[in-house]
Structures are given as structure tokens and as C-alpha cells.
Design a protein around this nucleic acid. Structure first.
Length: 264
DNA sequence: GCGACAG
DNA sequence: ATCTTGTCGC
């Protein structure tokens, strides 16, 4: 006989195996052809095509009427101006529940499909780097949503968490303690070193006004050091623009949908 | 045993 | 994730 508990634990075992298989392809060092254009390099003769120009952001929002109805969203921003140059939405019904540590099995399929569609169409704005609303290697098994999407789509990704996933002895009170001791300058960060001594990512106070930090970690094909630089360069508010715009527009899409549903 | 636990 | 308005302050 199979009760709820045994079936759920067996699917979790299956998920763990899939994460381990995909993790063999994970790259946590810089692995891309473009370069970041820092402020001092503005006058450089770096060739346009060698620079990071298009940076994507993905997020999912849910309907309050029907909690299984979700809107997957992809936005692409011009890295220099931080203006949105592309957006796409996909309305889907999700049957996979949210289980801490297995977010990718709920959210990755929709997001990867939107990316695939853009690539198939040969869209010139296809992102060179993607920011994901969720963690990268800051994860119980070192393979969060950002890693999952990065490996499956073979794209450099950065994980952005708005809350800390408690792993390896890491907790928010310790983070606050470290950030507090580290001066109150905005966009300053601390490395998240767990009890094991491993560095999982970084916590950053992205805005002077925000006491609540964001959590940055490598997704795929990018180092933590570079990921932090990119996040610092794209933070107008607490959450970096690519993820923030995906979040705002995704919510907007759902809101308008529910607005129409009321009319009918 | 109890609590914690990305979105 | 989502339910939810105004409000105090830089």
C-alpha cells in the first residue's frame, strides 16, 4: 500500500537523483565570451559585440483566485540603460507543489519553455545572462532553481533570493550581525560561509534604505565574484532590475487577468 | 519530539 | 507565492 508519505518521499528521492545528475554539468566559474563594462572602462575600445548587453530576468506569479494558475515571465533589459527591451508571458496550470529544496521542479519547466521559444525564434535580444528569482548553489544540495535553469538552458545564471534558505548553519540573525559590523554602506556584502567552511553565496544590503538583505549565489557559468558585480550594477532598488521588472510585470499580467474574469 | 525551510 | 491601506519619512 502506498500512503501519501511514502509516495511523496519516493518522488523526492527521484528529484534528488535528477538534481545530482544535472549538477554534474554545473560550472561555477566565469564561462562566457562577453565582458563587463565597468565605469572606468567606459572610454575603452572594447568591441561592442564583446560586451554584456542583454540581461534577462525570470519570475512567476500566482493567481489569488486559483492558486494553481501561474504566470511565467521573462524580461530582457539593456544592461547599459536598464530599460526593458523584451517581455513574454506564459499562463500555465501547475500541478507540482512547492517543496523547500525542490522549487525547480515546480517553476523551471515554464521558465525554460519561454526561453526556448525566444531562442527558436532567433530573437536578437536573447539574453547573455539570466537573473533568477530564487537561489543558485545556496541550496541544501548546492543546486537551486538558478542552477537548474542555467544547466537545462545552457545559460549563465545568477540566483537572487529575497529570503535566506537556512542551510549549513546559516541563519538571518548571523547575517544581520555580520552586515551590521560591516559598516552601513549600501551595496556592501558579506560572504555566506556555513558551519562546514563552504562559501554558499553572499548577502548584500542593496539599498541604504533597506535593512533586509538580498542573497546572491552562482547559478551556472558564473563566479560569485562576477555575480556580485553584476547585481551591484543593476540595483536601482533592493531587488536588481531584471528580477524586479519580471516580478512587477508578472503580477500585472495576473492582475489584469483576474480583472477580466470578474467582468465575465 | 519540535522547529526551520528559496517561491 | 498570496491575502492587504494607509502612512510615516527621507
Amino acid at each position: 500500500m502506498e500512503n501519501e508519505e511514502s509516495s511523496s518521499s519516493s518522488s523526492q528521492k527521484h528529484w534528488i537523483i535528477e538534481q545530482e545528475i544535472l549538477r554534474e554539468k554545473l560550472i561555477t566559474e566565469d564561462n562566457f565570451t562577453w565582458k563587463l563594462l565597468s565605469t572606468e572602462d567606459e572610454g575603452s575600445k572594447e568591441k561592442e559585440e564583446e560586451r554584456l548587453r542583454y540581461i534577462g530576468g525570470v519570475d512567476i506569479s500566482f493567481s489569488s483566485d486559483d492558486s494553481s494558475m501561474a504566470c511565467g515571465t521573462l524580461v530582457v533589459l539593456d544592461f547599459n540603460t536598464l530599460q526593458v527591451v523584451y517581455e513574454d508571458f506564459s499562463l500555465v496550470t501547475l500541478h507540482v507543489p512547492y517543496v523547500p529544496g525542490f522549487l525547480a521542479f515546480r517553476e523551471a519547466p515554464v521558465l525554460v519553455e519561454i526561453l526556448d521559444k525566444m531562442k527558436r525564434n532567433g530573437n536578437p535580444f536573447y539574453p547573455q545572462l539570466l537573473m533568477v528569482d530564487g537561489n543558485g548553489i545556496l541550496h541544501p544540495r548546492g543546486f537551486g532553481l538558478a542552477c537548474h535553469i542555467g544547466v537545462v538552458a545552457n545559460l549563465p545564471t545568477i540566483g537572487i533570493g529575497k529570503n535566506l534558505h537556512h542551510i549549513d548553519g546559516l541563519n538571518q540573525s548571523r547575517v544581520r550581525e555580520l552586515l551590521g559590523a560591516k559598516e552601513n554602506s549600501s551595496k556592501d556584502f558579506i560572504n555566506l560561509v556555513g558551519s562546514s567552511g563552504h562559501t554558499w553565496g553572499a548577502a548584500m544590503r542593496s539599498t541604504e534604505a533597506s535593512i533586509k538583505p538580498i542573497y546572491i549565489s552562482s547559478g551556472h557559468r558564473i563566479s560569485l565574484q562576477t555575480a556580485i558585480k553584476v547585481v551591484q550594477m543593476t540595483c536601482k532598488y533592493r531587488v536588481p532590475e531584471p528580477v524586479r521588472q519580471a516580478d512587477i510585470r508578472s503580477r500585472d499580467y495576473i492582475r489584469k487577468l483576474e480583472m477580466n474574469a470578474r467582468t465575465k
